[in-house]
Simulated scan of single mutants.
Amino acid sequence: MTYAVLTARLALAGVLLVSAVAKARSFEETWAMLDGLLRRIGPGARRSAGPSAVALIAVEGTTGLALLGPAQTVRPGLVAAVVLTAAFTAAAVVATVSRAEVACACFGRPAARLGRRHIVRNTPLLGLAVLGLAGTGAVSGTSPAAPAVVLCSVAAAVITVVTAFFDDIADLLATP
């Protein structure tokens, strides 16, 4: 279980940190995405798109760093990762059900309309967060061996890259 939790932590940290940096670099697209989602709540909620974008970037970055931090930050980081991935999945569900024309700027650049593919992308991330959180109690206090850390890191890097480029991969594999 130690290796599964380590892989989950590293993968979630990678995804969240890449997402936070990309959102910060493309702040206008992030603002537009949140504005489109908040429009579903009501006209007053749209005023909070800017502050919400700043808060989202900060929470994603902080959560990613917590997952990489010392033992005392891991559990709160995993709780935050569960909440974030559940919220991201819920936003994709709302956008799909309401047929909202909201471009997904999840990784900074608007790649596709927020919808089913993002539910498919986010559900395994939510599973990783839950696995990590559930497994933290079962993890022993011993450090994993170096080869295992390398293997977990490589797996996490693959998960991060596939997640960050999921829209591009889905478009590439889509039938014309």
Results as ranks from 00 to 15, higher is better:
A157T: 10
S52C: 05
T175K: 14
A87F: 04
C104P: 00
A24R: 10
L151F: 14
A138M: 14
G108I: 03
D168S: 14
L68C: 06
V120G: 01
R109N: 06
A134F: 03
S143N: 12
A4C: 13
A8S: 12
A95E: 02
A90N: 01
L67M: 10
A32I: 09
E60V: 00
L131T: 13
V149R: 12
P124C: 07
A20E: 03
S153A: 15
V82E: 05
A157E: 03
A90V: 11
D168H: 14
A87K: 04
A11T: 04
T123C: 08
E28Q: 13
T63R: 10
C152F: 02
L131S: 06
P51I: 01
A80M: 09
V5H: 00
Y3H: 14
G44T: 14
A66H: 05
V120N: 00
L126S: 03
G137D: 15
A103Y: 00
G141I: 09
G42Y: 04
T85K: 03
V83T: 08
R109F: 06
L133F: 10
T175D: 13
A13H: 07
D35C: 09
L126F: 11
L37Q: 05
V82T: 08
A45D: 02
A87W: 03
R25T: 08
A32C: 09
V149M: 11
E29R: 12
L78K: 12
V83S: 06
V154I: 14
V158R: 08
T7Q: 01
L38M: 13
L34P: 02
A24K: 04
L125E: 00
R47F: 14
S153C: 04
E60W: 07
P124Y: 04
V162Q: 06
V162T: 13
T7D: 02
R25G: 03
Q72C: 12
A13T: 04
A32T: 13
W31V: 14
V5D: 00
L172N: 11
T30E: 01
G137T: 12
R39D: 15
L17M: 14
A66E: 02
L84C: 04
T73K: 11
V54A: 10
Y3Q: 15
A129K: 05
V74D: 07
A100L: 03
L131D: 02
V139H: 03
T89S: 10
V21D: 01
G127R: 12
R9G: 00
R117S: 07
E101H: 15
A111N: 09
A91D: 04
S52G: 11
V120A: 13
A81Q: 05
A145F: 09
V21Q: 06
G64C: 10
G36D: 04
L126E: 01
V74Q: 15
A87C: 07
G14Q: 07
S52M: 10
A138F: 15
T2W: 07
P147N: 11
V154W: 06
D167M: 10
A90C: 00
P43C: 14
S140L: 15
T30D: 06
A112L: 13
S48I: 09
L125C: 01
T85F: 12
V97C: 06
F165C: 14
T123F: 11
S19K: 07
N122D: 08
R75W: 14
A91K: 01
